[in-house]
Each structure stands twice: as structure tokens, then as C-alpha cells.
């Protein structure tokens, strides 16, 4: 499925090197509301293929809102700005079109859908994606093979795959299930929204391992997290601090360590002191 030719080398992960290649995602001056309250207040971000961006910030900064807006959650209203994804105006697209364009969100709170089996759910999703891309439906054997392969990636229990979507899953199982779906759908941009929250260390390792194995030169990830902990496992190329609806500071993964040590207060101070 990865048909775009991409010459970027695996080593091109250092932010110190000049950024190369076409941007995958470009966000410009993004403003967004929920229930009339402005949460994003002029956010800019560019993500290129092969990059991992970590977005950190205090509670209420707008981290999850960014994930919701990028995936088209109807609860949020975009009032200003633009988002371009692989050359298309993302904001024009319905949520399922964005998904089929290759955007995947690992939900902070994965939704339970009683009575709908994971198998049925995944097959429907895969076939919708294939239809969108002008491909035939996946054959039963191919589908089962794919399921088996990807389940192993996140060490997911066979039983879980036969249950209803997220129903009765533990917190860790739900997060693993998100990464499993990500593996199945093979997105070009994955957004991990607080994927580490509520995970014990083993589950965190499994989830991170899954994400790392899925990393390729032509896809990218945005990792939204409150803590630096996840970034020990998923090494970001860039770390951005989101505060009061804007990215107020960007850096390398050292910034994450600094945030871990010093908290967010100094950032707030810096922002407030800025002219």
C-alpha cells in the first residue's frame, strides 16, 4: 500500500538536520471552539514523513482538542486557519474521509460498541478504506492472516478479537486494541492521544513497541502526552509545548526531560512575561 516513493533515509531523524521533503501535515493559525469556548488559539505545526512529534502541555492546554479537530470530531468547530494533509484541505473532509486518507487516532478513551465484534468492525473499516482507494474487498483468508499478524504485534489475546469492540476490555486492553487497529489500517499519520494514560509498565512497553515497529520513513506520528514517561519508549524527533491553545515552545527530546523535571510553571511564566 505504500506506493509513494520516498528516498528519505532512516537516519534523517535529527532535528538539527535541515528538514527535507514535502510536508505531510501543515497546520496554520488554527483556531477551534467547543460549545462556543475557544480552545485552540492560533496553532501552527508542520509534520514531515518519517517524523515523530510529541505534544506536551498542562491539562486543559488543548492537546486532545487538536486530536479531535484533526480527525473531524463534530463537537468542535474550526473558526480560523487551515490544515493541509498530503496536499488536501483536511477541514473540507468528513471524518471517515480523513480516516481513509490515512489519519488514525488512538483515542484517549476508546469507545465501547456493544454487540459489534472486533472482526466485523475491522473488516468493515478495511473494506471501506480499500473502496476509497479503488481496491477490491479483502478476501476472507487475507483478512484473517492480517488479523493474526497484527494481533501478534501488540501481543493481543485471541479472545479479545472475538469480543465486541472495547466492551469489557480493561484500560490496557483498550489501548492495545487501539494500536492493533492502527496496525491493521496502516495510517500515514497516527495521532496517539494520551495512549500512555492508565497503562502499567508492561502494557506501556507493548504499546510503544507496537508503535515503533509500525514506524516507516513515509509515515509520521503525533504523540500527545502529559508525561515524559512514554517518550522513553517512543523517541520523538520534536517536542512541542502546547499552552493556552498555541505551541509556545519547540525543541528536541531534551525539552521533554526538562518539562519532566521542572513542570510547566516556568513555561507559563515565560509565556506571560513575553511581550
Amino acid at each position: 500500500m505504500n506506493t509513494t516513493n520516498n528516498n528519505q533515509s532512516q537516519t534523517l531523524t535529527s532535528p538539527l538536520l535541515e528538514r527535507l521533503g514535502e510536508a505531510l501535515l501543515t497546520i496554520k493559525n488554527l483556531h477551534a471552539n467547543i460549545n462556543g469556548k475557544e480552545i485552540l488559539k492560533g496553532l501552527d505545526l508542520t509534520v514531515r514523513p518519517g517524523e515523530i512529534h510529541a505534544i506536551m502541555g498542562p491539562n486543559g492546554a488543548g492537546k486532545s482538542t487538536l486530536a479531535s479537530v484533526l480527525t473531524g470530531n463534530p463537537a468542535f468547530e474550526v473558526t480560523h486557519g487551515s490544515v493541509t494533509f498530503q496536499g488536501k484541505d483536511l477541514l473540507e473532509l468528513a471524518p471517515e474521509q480523513r480516516a481513509n486518507e490515512g489519519i488514525f487516532l488512538s483515542f484517549q478513551y476508546p469507545v465501547e460498541i456493544p454487540g459489534v465484534s472486533m472482526v466485523n468492525f475491522m473488516r468493515t473499516a478495511i473494506n471501506e478504506q480499500r473502496k476509497y482507494r479503488g481496491l477490491d474487498q479483502i478476501s476472507a483468508t487475507d483478512f484473517l492472516r492480517l488479523m493474526r499478524e497484527k494481533k501478534e504485534l501488540v501481543e493481543m489475546d485471541n479472545k479479545l478479537a472475538n469480543r465486541s469492540v472495547n466492551e469489557g476490555f480493561s484500560g490496557g486492553e483498550k489501548k492495545r486494541n487501539e494500536i492493533f487497529q492502527m496496525a491493521m489500517l496502516d495510517p500515514s499519520l497516527s495521532i496517539l492521544d494520551e495512549t500512555d494514560s492508565g497503562l502499567d509498565i508492561d502494557a506501556l512497553r507493548i504499546v510503544a513497541n507496537g508503535v515503533n515497529k509500525l514506524k516507516r520513513p513515509n509515515n509520521a506520528s503525533i504523540v500527545i502526552t502529559h508525561y515524559q514517561r512514554l517518550l522513553d519508549y517512543i523517541i520523538p524527533d520534536f517536542v512541542h509545548v502546547l499552552y493556552d491553545g498555541k505551541i509556545v515552545k519547540s525543541g528536541t527530546k531534551d525539552l521533554a526531560f526538562e518539562l519532566e523535571e521542572r513542570g510547566y510553571d516556568w513555561i507559563k511564566q515565560e509565556v506571560e512575561e513575553a511581550p
Binding site: A94, N100, F121
Partner: peptide
């Protein structure tokens, strides 16, 4: 609506 959006996000 959360369920519908979850499905939408998976391309359905």
C-alpha cells in the same frame, strides 16, 4: 455519537 465518531475515525 461517540460510537459513530469512533467508526467514522476508522473510515466507516
Amino acid at each position: 455519537e461517540d460510537q459513530i465518531f469512533y467508526c467514522n475515525q476508522r473510515g466507516i
